[in-house]
Simulated scan of single mutants.
Amino acid sequence: MSLHAVAVVGNPKPASRTADAAVRLARALGADDVELIDLVDLGAGLLGWGDPVVVDAVARVQAADLAIVASPTFKATYTGLLKLFLDQFATGTGLQGVVAVPLMLGAAPGHQLAPELLLKPVLVELGATVPTPAVYQLDSTYLDDPKLVDWLERWGPTVRTLASR
C-alpha cells in the first residue's frame, strides 16, 4: 500500500525545524512519498486568489492521502503565513478526502494545546478528516520526543488505515 503525503509548512523561515518535523512525522506514519510545500516559497501569491503557483500547491494538497499541516507557535497560535494558505481552500469541501494531522512546534510546553484548539478546527472546517489529537513538540527536543513515539503507537494505525483508503 503506497501512501502519498504532503507536508504543508507555515514557517516564515525556509528549511526550518518545523519542515523537518513535518516530513519526519509523515515518514513515521508510513508515507512512501512526502512532498514538502514550504509556504514561504509561495511569497506574495498567497495574498490574493488565482496565483498559479498557489493554485498548484492547493491542488497538490487536495490530491494527497495524508497532509501534515505544520506551523511554529507564533503569539500562541499558528502563523499568518499558514492562515493565508488555508484561506485558499473552500469551506467544507476544500480538504475533503484528505486525512490531516495538525502539528505545531514551540519553545515551551505552555502552548501545547494550540494545535488542538486553534489549528485542528480550521482543518475540520475545510473538510479534512482529522481523526487524532494534534501533535505539539518542543522545537528543542523534537528529534528525540518520547511523547511522539507514544502518539505514533496509539494513533499511527488509525492514520494509516484512513489515509490508505
Rank of each mutant, 00 (worst) to 15 (best):
M1W: 10
H4L: 10
A5L: 00
V6R: 01
V6D: 02
V6Y: 05
A7S: 13
V8Y: 06
V8G: 08
N11R: 05
K13V: 14
P14C: 04
P14Y: 02
A15S: 10
S16E: 02
S16W: 03
R17A: 14
R17H: 15
R17G: 13
T18Q: 09
D20N: 13
A21S: 13
V23M: 12
R24C: 09
A26H: 03
A26L: 00
R27A: 11
R27Y: 04
R27N: 12
L29A: 12
G30K: 07
D33F: 04
V34K: 10
E35Q: 09
E35M: 00
L36Y: 06
L36H: 07
L39T: 07
L39R: 04
V40K: 14
D41A: 15
G43V: 09
A44C: 08
G45V: 06
G45N: 10
W49I: 12
G50S: 03
P52M: 12
P52K: 13
V55C: 11
R60L: 03
D65Q: 14
L66I: 01
L66T: 03
A67I: 01
A67Q: 07
A67W: 03
I68F: 06
S71W: 01
P72C: 10
A76T: 13
A76S: 15
T77I: 09
T79G: 00
T79P: 06
G80N: 05
L82S: 02
K83S: 09
L84P: 00
L84Q: 10
L84I: 00
F89C: 05
T91C: 10
T91K: 15
G94S: 04
Q96L: 11
Q96S: 15
Q96V: 08
A100D: 14
V101F: 02
G106E: 04
A107W: 11
P109S: 14
P109N: 15
G110L: 03
L117P: 02
P121R: 01
P121C: 05
V122I: 08
V122Y: 01
L123H: 12
L123A: 09
V124C: 10
V124R: 13
E125I: 01
E125C: 07
E125Q: 13
L126H: 11
T129P: 01
V130C: 02
P133V: 06
P133F: 00
V135Q: 03
Y136P: 00
Y136G: 00
D139W: 11
S140H: 14
S140N: 14
Y142G: 01
L143W: 13
D144I: 05
D144G: 05
D145M: 00
D145I: 05
P146F: 02
P146E: 06
P146K: 02
K147D: 15
L148V: 05
D150N: 14
L152K: 06
E153I: 07
R154I: 12
W155E: 10
R160H: 08
L162C: 01
A163W: 02
A163V: 00
S164L: 00
R165D: 15
